[in-house]
Design a protein around this nucleic acid. Structure first.
Lengths: 245, 245
DNA sequence: CGGTGCATTGATCAGAATCAATGATCGTGG
DNA sequence: CCACGATCATTGATTCTGATCAATGCACCG
């Protein structure tokens, strides 16, 4: 039976009662993809499904890192704050992304729901003992961490050396790539997060983000569609813009 | 027997012939700290000791990732380039640091020797099979990756949201912390890298780095000693400066 | 002694931040 | 259903931090 958390409304679906993970829509994307049926059953026994609404805190920097998460729907922002309130968003998590890979005693960053978010929550200790039991799960986690490191290095290049225009274009392309990775079209791209989220992710201000979008619209590099979707008419061209050719 | 590489002069010491790793000066700092004597022997059998002089390339972005490394002496810079030559240094590695944790088929960054560097080189495939054999080694690697992620997030905050002064002070403090982690005094701090390395690590120019050092000297926040060592007279004060209190 | 590379300092410039106003969107309640 | 307020996005005017351009200083080395 799934460990229901009554503080947050759990996602209740009929198929979950038997083995919720078996029916998980993001299984192939997540660390769970390496598990067989029995192992999946064990995962489901320690997992709780939770839902968060926009702006809900999911974890807070500094608090005890008692839980790890898998994002099963929506978008999550990870961020750190300076004492005076300056914010750096270190990443946006979506379908299948793993949250809490840093195995410290306390979280070193905060996480909030950007839109309606579903997560699968694991008690850290129980997940760790599963990791000991299943080296291939640990190996998968190492792979995930390694990918995140590669992304982090790209983001450092972006933050340290790219212009505002290059930052915005790189950001749109990374969203596009993520969409293709989960089998969706490269364009148009969904932007669930606000201008200020984008600004704090790219080391800019909201005004500069807005101006740069206007600029890109003006020279036809992007088109804004209904529902805030952004069409990328010429990905090759954008790819060159992103690296400042 | 150690697998000698004749292109680069290996470090040859008498104790290496039997089991070089047993006498390794950075063993306790490196991933090898979790290995027992037999396991260490196996590591030594796949390891090659290499030396690099300042500016020597160690790995090149894009080339096949056939080797992983442990830094056993000196300082290594990791960096990425944009087509027009802009450079972002993503990290400096020293004693005990592991190089190549991103297990992609090709390196996603380049590495060069800053000063005289010693490394311990492992063929990737052989190391991977050792990882399969020893889950605790894999676990240790996951821990290393996790630490690097935490550091990467701090660096994103630095690059995206800190002022030049905060960046320089944060940098000096991180060097100081690293020194204490290997049992040395917190101050003075050694700066083996050039102004331009520091600039490319912090998302600044050499001129701004130089000016900011002068500024910090003027208000007595730092003192330059012989040999380019930097004394940090009041670490608490610097810690506040670093986060913009 | 002169040359080369690196660091420092100064003068000016520019890209993005800040300050400020207006516009668009959305949810809520009269 | 529309009006109001709140929040977010856009655009404009101005400022400022750090980049760029330029010159000088300094140390190491042949």
């Amino acid at each position: 039976m799934v460990n229901l958390d009554l503080n947050k409304l759990p996602v209740a679906r009929a198929d979950m009662v038997v083995n919720p993970c078996a029916a998980c829509s993001v299984r192939d994307l997540s660390i769970c993809s390496v598990l067989d049926e029995d192992e999946l059953q064990q995962m489901s026994e320690i997992a709780a499904n939770l839902q968060f609404s926009p702006h809900d805190p999911i974890i807070d920097e500094g608090e005890a890192a008692d839980f790890l998460f898998n994002v099963t729907g929506g978008t999550v922002r990870l961020y750190k704050l300076l004492p005076d309130g300056r914010r750096q968003i270190t990443g946006f998590l979506t379908n299948g992304d793993f949250l809490g890979i840093a195995l410290n005693d306390n979280y070193t960053y905060s996480a909030e729901a950007v839109d309606q978010v579903n997560v699968c929550r694991f008690p850290r200790k129980k997940l760790e003992s599963l990791l000991d039991q299943y080296p291939h799960l640990e190996k998968r986690l190492l792979g995930v961490a390694s990918n995140e490191l590669v992304q982090a290095q790209d983001q450092m290049m972006l933050l340290g050396r790219k212009t505002a225009k290059e930052k915005i274009v790189s950001f749109l392309l990374s969203l596009s790539k993520r969409q293709t990775a989960i089998g969706r079209a490269a364009s148009p791209v969904a932007l669930p997060m606000s201008r200020s989220d984008i600004a704090d992710y790219l080391g800019l201000t909201t005004e500069t983000v807005s101006r740069t979008f206007s600029l890109l619209k003006r020279d036809q590099s992007i088109r804004i569609q209904e529902g805030g979707m952004v069409a990328l008419p010429d990905i090759d061209h954008l790819t060159e813009l992103a690296d400042g050719y």
